[in-house]
Structure formats: structure tokens, C-alpha cells
Computed example of a mutant assay.
Amino acid sequence: MRVEVVRKKIEEEIEGIYRLDTMRTLETKRSQPKILSLVDDGDGSFPENDVSLTLPIYMKDFYDVCILGISHGLFCFYGYMKGMRMAVFWNPSIKKSVDIVVPDEIRTVVGFGVCPRTSDPKLVSIPDNLWQVEVFTLSSEAWRSITTNSSLKQIRSITWNQVAIDGCIYWHAHDLDFVNGRRVYQDVILSFDLTSEEFITIKLPDCV
């Protein structure tokens, strides 16, 4: 069963949790965990044995929750709890999770991935004004600001959908350019290197 199938099953589990009306019903559902087989997708991240994909119990308090990303066998959930933006790193193999408070900026895009050099899970928070990008590392358990390079200066919008591949997080974005004196918005791929913590933009062909 490939990663996207596992992702769909977990999304169904999340939807099921929030349809429940009482704690008693919730506990009954959680006492019957779904068993799925996580098969290695080529990077050795996922175990081949059967594991329980029962979600962390405190996620019952989350709302507007989604799967932000999957990297090196870790899932990252994003949502709200008690009025705060929260992210959760979850390792289904060892049934451990860590919750992180995300900076509360308007229209912030958040990305998730694992640094291939240090195996350190990271979050990157990109505010709408792009002025103060922050990075969270699990090893430090803290957010810190980073200096952004020129690749981020022309970006005008970033989609929430992301993918983490080969040590980088990728988003579909739009940047501003000038053609014959006119402002033109172009489709680009924005990447964030999880090791160097630098942004790069890749322009897409006009035919895409």
C-alpha cells in the first residue's frame, strides 16, 4: 500500500473522529484501531510490518485539521486547538507524537520536511508579507528567524499544497515580473532546501 493510500486512510480516520458526538463513542471507535501495511516507497522510511494507525488521543481537540506533509516516515498534521495554530509530528511506527505551536500570522503558509543531513524534522513558516520567515527544528524545540534570499522577494502568492522530496519542500507559487513594461504574474515552483535553509524559484514553461 503506497503512501498516498495510507494518507487517504488517515484522512478518513480524521473525518470519522470529528463526526463523533460523545467521548464514549470516541473511545469505542479508538478501541478498534485500523491496521494497515506501510510499504517502503524507496527511501527506507516506512516499515514493512503491520502497524496501528490510531491517531494521538489529544487530536480530538483539534479542528480544521489536515495532513500538512509526509517525510521520512513522519506525518505532520496542521490545525487549530484552543484558538492556537498547531502542528503535530506523528511517527506511526513507534506511536509517538509531538505538538508544536505555530506563529499566529495572518495568511501564513507552513511547510514540513525532514533534513536529510541531520534527520531533524523541520517546519517553515512563511508569512504573507514574506518579511520574517521562521524555522522550527525538533532538536531545538524552538522557532528562529532566518534571512531570506532574493528568490523569495518577487513571490506574490504561495499555495498550501506541498511535497517534500530529496531534502527540499516544494510549493506552487506566483511571482511578479515585468514584460515590456507591464506587470506579469508567472507560475513558478518555490523550493526550500531543508539543509541550507535557502529558497529557490523555478519558472514553469508557458505551456504548463
Rank of each mutant, 00 (worst) to 15 (best):
N129G: 05
K122V: 10
S139G: 15
T147D: 09
D166Q: 04
L138N: 03
K122Q: 12
L138I: 10
R156D: 04
V135K: 09
V133W: 03
L138V: 13
S119Q: 15
F136W: 02
P121L: 03
G167I: 07
D166N: 08
W143K: 06
E134H: 00
F136G: 00
S157I: 05
W131Q: 07
Q162T: 15
S151N: 14
D120Q: 14
I146S: 07
S119I: 06
V135N: 07
E141Y: 09
N129D: 00
W143E: 08
S119D: 15
P127I: 09
I146Y: 13
A164Y: 02
N149D: 08
N129H: 00
K122F: 09
Q154G: 03
R156L: 05
S150A: 12
T148G: 09
N129V: 01
V124P: 11
P121E: 10
W131P: 11
K153R: 12
Q154T: 13
S157R: 13
K153H: 11
P121R: 10
W143F: 02
L123D: 06
N149M: 07
E134L: 05
W131N: 10
D120A: 14
Q132K: 13
L152K: 12
N161W: 09
S125L: 07
R144A: 01
Q154K: 12
S151T: 02
L138E: 11
